[in-house]
């Protein structure tokens, strides 16, 4: 299970990468492996305002649907449209090319609620039990 040290994580298995006052968001390696082969991605539109826990997208495998939630409050300022054509990228490069949205945060200190890599690793371990 790959859990990059420089990212932040949620209990719903999204990751976030700080880019100034914005947060780039995707799903973790754990999430993609649990879902299996991803066949479809639908993301919220540019400009959509979101709050923590609100839907920013939906990811589907053949037998499962998972909603992706925003880790923070803000506005979606970039959407990774290429996922629509190549949803399988989430399986192959979930921390890289398969990012989902970029959110301009209302309050950049909000990321303090998110887990670091070690905390997320511990969380996964605890969940497995």
């Amino acid at each position: 299970m790959v859990i990059p040290e420089d990212l932040l994580y949620t209990k719903d298995h999204e990751w976030g990468r700080r880019e100034d006052t914005s947060l780039r968001v995707g799903i973790s390696d754990y999430a993609q492996s649990e879902l299996g082969d991803i066949v479809f991605v639908e993301l919220e539109k540019m400009g959509t305002r979101v709050r923590p826990g609100e839907k920013i997208g939906t990811v589907e495998s053949v037998k499962a649907v998972s909603e992706i939630f925003s880790p923070v409050s803000g506005a979606i300022i970039e959407v990774n449209d290429s996922l629509e054509q190549s949803p399988e990228m989430i399986n192959t490069d979930c921390y890289g090319d398969a990012w989902m949205v970029l959110i301009a945060m209302d309050d950049p200190t909000e990321t303090a609620h998110l887990m670091g890599a070690q905390a997320y690793r511990d969380y996964l371990e605890a969940e497995a039990k």
């Binding site: 479809f40 589907e60 495998s61 053949v62 037998k63 499962a64 649907v65």
Partner: peptide, 12 residues
């Protein structure tokens, strides 16, 4: 496209 259906998406 079974993810549209009740046995996967249930109430949605």
């Amino acid at each position: 496209l079974s993810t549209r259906e009740q046995h996967i998406r249930r109430e949605k």
